[in-house]
Each structure stands twice: as structure tokens, then as C-alpha cells.
Nucleic acid binder design. Structure first.
Lengths: 112, 112
DNA sequence: TATAATATATCATCATATGATATAAATGTA
DNA sequence: TACATTTATATCATATGATGATATATTATA
């Protein structure tokens, strides 16, 4: 049977942080809180971004529902596919940093 | 006299790469080519993204026009304000990588 | 019992990105 | 010289992404 998936080739910051957070199973509200804590309040995902992004990540099969007795909470976890994309996205960001560092060095401009 | 500026607090990938490229003065078309070369063809900025983003970066005073005799080409360079924001954005990306690395390590999942 | 925190969800709007298209000059080549 | 390609800038319409505001219900706490 055909499964219709929405592809997400590149991750913007919001889905990136959600995938990182969901390497440990959590429900939506707790993902919000954990990202806020992880980033010392520097990156905040509100409910609108949270729940719309969760739907997109589910449809792209980058996260999946985990069954936990709690009717009220919906618990998710990053799938293998999600972890693979996350690795790629970490490397992409490392490269962006490297490109910038190289240019700063060439211009004799300190990054510190 | 009042100068109307559009603020850009966070940089997405396209303006990030344009600011990096414009640490050396260039005209729009050459920025496109240089980003393609810099990223080994992994990040391509087409004309629509290029010229609309240039307008936004100008309005935010993150880049400025450099006078060069050529009537046909418009040469730009990243301003001090642009360099400052770029530094901040490099750090932001470094932190995102660190957050992900920490989680990968905790989960015993290799990033390589 | 009133208040705050937890928890999920959608709507309308704004911001951002981009394929397609247009225009024109310069350069290369047949 | 004629033709194609590359250089160079620009805009339109559309698609995608992000988010403030709002709504609803449950659970914990003062």
C-alpha cells in the first residue's frame, strides 16, 4: 500500500531543534520546554510552530508516534531516517561555519 | 535626516552566504558564481533569491554599494554592521552543531 | 475555588524563497 | 557577419515556512 510522504530535504532551525530534542522520546509541550532549556532561552518555539512542524515531520517520516498509555500526551521520537537527515544537516552547518571562518581568516578579521 | 532601515535579526542560509561572499567586494552575478564555487555546487542562489536578498541586505545596512566605474555592474561589500551580525550568526550555527553533537554523544550515536 | 501550568490545535498573516520570465550588453564562435 | 552563449540585473507570481493570537480542556497548586 502506498504511503504518501512529504519530503523535507533541508531543515530550517525549528525542525532541526525538534529532531535533536526528539532523539529522546517526548511529547510536544515538553519539546518546547526542552529546546528553551537547551538553548538557554535563546531559541523559543511557540505552540503554532511546534504543532505545525510536528505534523510536517510526521508526514516526512522523520519522527514517529510512540505509544505510551497517556491519552492526553502524544509522545514522539526521531526515526532512523530523521537521525540520518540530522547528521547531514549538522555537517551542512559545520561547512557553513568553515566557509565563514575561512573568509574571516583571509580578511584578517578575528571571529572571537 | 531619518534613514529607514529594515532590520534583519537572524540570517537564513541565503543572506548568510551572501554576507560571507561580500567580505570581498563583488557584483550580484559574481556573488552567485562565487557561492556556487565556494560550496562545490551544494548551495546555489538563483537570480530571484539573489537580487531580492541584495535589496533586503541593503535596506538593513548589512551591505553597501561600492562605487566602481562600471555602469553595468553594481558592486557591493559587507558593512561593519554586516560583519558583526555574521559573527553572531557563525556562533549561532556553532551552538546548533554543539547541541546536536551533545545529544548524539549522549545517545551513543556516532556523527561520522 | 480560582489561578497557573500543562497540553494540543488551528487560523490568519507575515516573511522568505524561488521558478519563470524579461531585458540587454558583452563575449565567443562558426 | 551572424548566431549562441554568458554576463548582468530585475520583477512577478507562487510556494513554503514561521508565528501571534486565539481556542479548548485537563491537571496541579495556592
Amino acid at each position: 500500500m502506498a504511503r504518501y510522504t512529504t519530503e523535507m530535504e533541508e531543515l530550517t532551525d525549528t525542525p532541526f531543534y525538534i529532531l535533536v530534542s526528539l532523539m529522546e522520546a517526548k511529547h510536544g509541550y515538553f519539546i518546547m520546554k526542552s529546546i528553551e532549556t537547551m538553548t538557554n532561552g535563546n531559541f523559543i518555539v511557540g505552540p503554532a510552530s511546534m504543532y505545525t512542524t510536528i505534523q510536517k515531520l510526521l508526514s516526512a517520516e522523520l519522527i514517529e508516534l510512540v505509544d505510551e498509555g497517556d491519552r492526553r500526551k502524544k509522545t514522539y521520537i526521531t526515526t532512523k531516517k530523521g537521525v540520518q537527515l540530522l547528521k547531514k544537516e549538522v555537517k551542512r552547518r559545520q561547512e557553513m561555519v568553515r566557509h565563514a571562518e575561512k573568509m574571516f581568516k583571509e580578511k584578517g578579521e578575528p571571529l572571537a
